[in-house]
Design a binder for these strands. Structure first.
Length: 543
RNA sequence: GCGCCCGUAGCUCAGUUGGAUAGAGCAACAGCCUUCUAAGCUGUGGGUCGGAGGUUCGAUUCCUCCCGGGCGCGCCA
């Protein structure tokens, strides 16, 4: 119904001579300023050379809004026009929420748009650490937000299963196997020292007694199982975290299919490359980068940049209108060159997007859990999930914007009290369910066809209005790729729901009030459940 | 030195394309258990929005400079 008001405001603005005023119609922070508010008069003040308040008078006099939509209009402050929605409009909100049910909050802003969200993309050289976990949760939630706004989303993991790091993990594994067999062997320079390879070697030796008889060459060939096994372990953990990928892309496959050579040929053909000092350069500086970048080093080998380009070309060829890469913030310096290439290839300014994820610190027992220097072990993501569970892991990583550093408070995440935001939100859902449980009724039995006059308390209407905003919150969070806007909303909503639950008795009230409040409880339960579900969190009926 | 991010209540952080008296949680203080989960609810106190200019009817928000913190600046990945 805000569309009705928006359209009418636009009509009046056009009538006054300003066709495209660019005004906003928004929900004021302060409830005393109405349900919706516009700055139209203040924006028109300049072009029309008139006093904003006088203009507001003129505008409100011209507005033709049905009484079934707007109950009251008021001019306030420097020239805001505030609207109070009619009860009928609120009534239809409740019915809308209930009839939409699990789909309430979905939109079609991105209808038909294919988006690829690539995230985690950890090297298959070891266990995932907490930073990967943050990227996993944020990437998954951004993907879900895009789905809820109508986009066709592909969740993708890019496996860096080729190159130097892979050789090193293979060599490191073979060294650990040799050590298991009682032979002297050392982890190579730049290799992987983590305990996980010792454990892997142990398991492999137990399973394959024939390893003892292998030559070094045969052993290294055997040890090529390392990346695959480590990747599978990552996938299993992600699955436990409820992060499931549609596509696992392989750098090795990109190379093997000749896409790297094809990329080089394409760039050369477009005149984007040149030779200098025995190396091959790419003219990224002409497309926003600080300087040109090396593709082929003077020793003849390729930089890691090249397969990355090939991979991004591959994604584009698969027909996505947009790709979003979720990267660790330490890679932010890499953005201009990648954006530069894609710009040079004519993919369009909006095609390539990066969501940066900052570092994660972990606090446990009042102190920071640090990386131990000797073993090279990080706090693994598995540790974290074991400590606090999947819901808390996900929620905590989602409740702050990715681009700000985050301290994960393990002790808080474990608490079963209202101090813990995920607990608080889930508890609100459980309470709404509890009302129906006590009543011995199925929530589905509460219909939206109730009298709004039967909701006498201000808390009733406040809660209802909050529920109605949910789709806008989803749309805004999706647009800015910021899941924390949704967790913030859920905490606000939970606060109102708890307050309402406390203040407004449902069962045993007068019949029409009970019916109306049951409908409200059902609607609140729907929105809480939808928000939690969207973010990959459980919505328990009792706790 | 250059680039990016950040600086908001004692602490952790929100702040909707520039809007009205800058918010929440925690912590502190004061209340509330015959009633749908007290695993909870209500109220109070707490701020030169890092600093100084500028643009604007209006700036936490945009621009410039400075201070303070993080990260990145390879023919490494």
């Amino acid at each position: 119904m805000s569309e009705v008001i928006r359209a009418e405001l636009a009509r009046v603005a056009a009538h006054l001579g300003v066709a495209d005023a660019g005004f906003v119609l928004e929900r004021p922070r302060d409830g005393g300023h109405g349900d919706l508010s516009t700055n139209l008069a203040m924006l028109l003040a300049k072009p029309l050379k008139a006093n904003p308040r006088a203009l507001a008078q003129k505008i409100t006099a011209e507005l033709q809004l049905p009484a079934s939509v707007v109950a009251k209009t008021e001019i306030a402050g420097p020239g805001f026009i505030n609207f109070w929605l009619a009860q009928d409009a609120l009534h239809s909100l409740l019915a809308t929420i209930i009839s939409a049910g699990p789909a309430f909050g979905r939109g079609d802003a991105g209808a038909g748009q294919r988006v690829n969200v690539e995230f985690v993309s950890a090297n298959p050289t070891g266990p995932l650490h907490v930073g990967h976990g943050r990227g996993a949760c944020l990437g998954d939630a951004i993907a879900a937000l895009l789905e809820w706004t109508g986009h066709a989303v592909t969740r993708e993991f890019y496996i860096n299963d080729a190159g130097v790091q892979i050789d090193r993990v293979i060599q490191s594994l073979w060294a650990r196997i040799e050590q298991q067999l009682g032979r002297p062997a050392e982890i190579p320079e730049g290799g992987y020292h983590g305990q996980y390879l010792v454990e892997l070697a142990q398991a492999l030796v137990a399973k394959h007694p024939e390893l003892a008889g292998l030559t070094a060459e045969q052993g290294l060939a055997f040890a090529t199982v390392a990346p695959g096994l480590l990747r599978a372990e990552q996938e299993e953990l992600l699955r436990d975290l409820r992060v499931v990928f549609d596509v696992w892309s392989s750098e090795k496959a990109v190379r093997d299919q000749g896409k790297v050579d094809a990329a080089l040929a394409l760039l050369a053909e477009r005149g984007l490359t040149y030779h200098q000092d025995g190396a091959l350069f790419l003219r990224t500086s002409e497309y926003g980068d600080d300087k040109d970048r090396v593709l082929r080093k003077s020793d003849g080998s390729l930089t890691y940049f090249v397969p990355d380009i090939a991979y991004h070309i591959d994604k584009h060829e698969r027909g996505f209108e947009r790709v979003i890469d979720v990267w660790g913030a330490d890679h932010h310096g890499y953005i201009p060159r990648m954006r530069g290439v894609l710009r040079a290839l004519g993919y369009g300014e909006d095609y390539f997007e990066v969501a940066l994820v900052q570092l994660v610190k972990v606090m446990k027992g009042g102190e920071e859990v640090r990386m131990s220097k000797r073993s090279g072990e990080f706090v693994t993501l598995r540790d974290l999930v074991d400590w606090v569970g999947v819901d808390a892991t996900r929620y905590f990583f989602l409740m702050r914007p990715g681009q700000s550093p985050f301290t994960f408070d393990v002790d808080l995440a474990r608490k079963q009290t209202d101090e813990n935001p995920i607990f608080y939100v889930q508890m609100a859902h459980a309470r709404m369910s509890g009302i129906f449980r006590v009543a011995g009724r199925d929530p589905e039995s509460a219909t939206g066809d109730v009298k709004l006059e039967a909701l006498p308390a201000p808390e009733d209407l406040e809660l209802l209005k909050k529920l109605a905003v949910f789709p806008e919150v989803v749309a805004r969070a999706a647009k800015s790729r910021e899941p924390h806007k949704l967790t913030d909303y859920l905490e606000d909503l939970a606060r109102l729901a708890h307050g309402w639950y406390h203040k407004c008795r449902v069962l045993g009230e007068a019949a029409d009030t009970e019916a109306a409040r049951l409908a409200l409880a059902r609607a609140a339960r729907i929105v809480l459940a939808n928000g939690l579900t969207l973010l990959g969190l459980s919505a328990p009926d009792r706790m």
